[in-house]
């Protein structure tokens, strides 16, 4: 499926002969026996007809799966554990196949167009192919042949880690350091900058009553929105699949919360192409970067005053 997992999967073929085939084989044997004792030539003809159907029924499913081609396409982004629909087109579809990804539900393929097959990526990652299982019993269903195929995706599918919303908070702007996972609540709300005379149309809630009382005329408050804080998250992975996955899931949670709180976020990870430091504009950006994060050297951010630093590090396995 992805480059980093299930690499031991090879195409396999499983054969099973159905009870109907055994019944036909039994009838063939009876016909042969009857023909060799009654002398009836027509019984030989019937036996040959049934034998022909049996041979085609047993062989065709296996032949149909030899060299069968498939293409798969789907969305660019998904989330680990979330059902994702891929469009899979099978060569020689009119023969009638059942297709599924992993142990998902079977879908019937009987026409020329692709079919929608559900895939559930178990982990974050870059998926450049999917392993599909094809099953064919054409044309009579006398035997079933199965085959697993690794089908390259037309374009890569990036599976973002799950979002785990834990207690980790975005630290205050003044906190700058290397501490792991420490956090403080940011100063939320607006601050009073000055007062001015009332202008028609100002909302009543902005009236500064003490100043109005002192001056004898309406005075309203001028408020100032607090400055957006910058959050820098460093995700340092060690190569342990489960531990890395958990760290990425938590990083995703932190990014989601920080973005929700209105902070700007930068994310530092190591990718197969080298260190990666990116401004995160949305959860999708974070998901894409975390999907491809691997163990390695993370870029060191430039220390800027007011930046909250969060350093997530996997313990390895």
């Amino acid at each position: 499926m992805s480059a980093d997992r299930r690499s031991d999967l090879t195409p396999i073929a499983m054969r099973s002969v159905t009870s109907a085939a055994w019944v036909i084989a039994g009838i063939c044997a009876l016909m042969a026996l009857a023909a060799r004792t009654t002398g009836s030539g027509w019984l030989v003809v019937i036996m040959c007809m049934l034998a022909g159907a049996l041979a085609i029924g047993l062989v065709t499913p296996h032949v149909a799966l030899i060299g069968v081609g498939a293409t798969a396409t789907g969305p660019s982004d998904t989330v680990a554990g979330a059902p994702t629909t891929l469009a899979i087109a099978i060569g020689r579809p009119n023969l009638g196949y059942l297709v599924r990804i992993d142990d998902g539900p079977w879908t019937m393929v009987t026409t020329g167009g692709p079919v929608m097959v559900t895939m559930v990526p178990p982990r974050r990652g870059r998926y450049d192919s999917v392993d599909i299982e094809l099953c064919c019993g054409a044309p009579f269903g006398l035997s079933w042949a199965r085959r697993r195929l690794r089908v390259p995706l037309v374009h890569d599918l990036l599976a973002a880690p799950r979002t785990v919303d834990d207690a980790t908070q975005v630290p205050p702007a003044s906190d700058v350091g290397e501490s792991d996972e420490h956090s403080t609540r940011p100063h939320g709300g607006e601050q009073l900058r000055s007062v001015r005379d009332y202008v028609h149309g100002d909302p009543l809630r902005l009236v500064h009553w003490p100043a109005t009382a002192r001056r004898g005329e309406l005075v309203v408050k001028e408020l100032e929105t607090p400055a957006r804080r910058h959050v820098h998250i460093t995700v340092e992975l060690r190569g342990g699949a489960n531990a890395d996955e958990r760290v990425c899931e938590r990083a995703m949670g932190i990014v989601t919360r920080a973005l929700g709180d209105g902070h700007t976020v930068t994310l530092a990870t190591a990718s197969p192409d080298g260190p990666q430091l990116g401004d995160i504009g949305s959860r999708v950006d974070a998901g894409r970067q975390l999907a491809v994060a691997v163990a390695g050297h993370c870029p060191v951010p430039t220390t800027i005053a007011g930046t909250a630093q969060i350093h997530l590090r996997s313990g390895g396995e």
Binding site: S40, A51, G52, A53, T60, F140
Partner: peptide, 20 residues
Amino acid sequence: GIALAGIVGIGVFLIVPAAK
């Protein structure tokens, strides 16, 4: 499939022993 079965059936007919 039916056509192929017919062809294979004819092939089988050409090799099987006669009724007795």
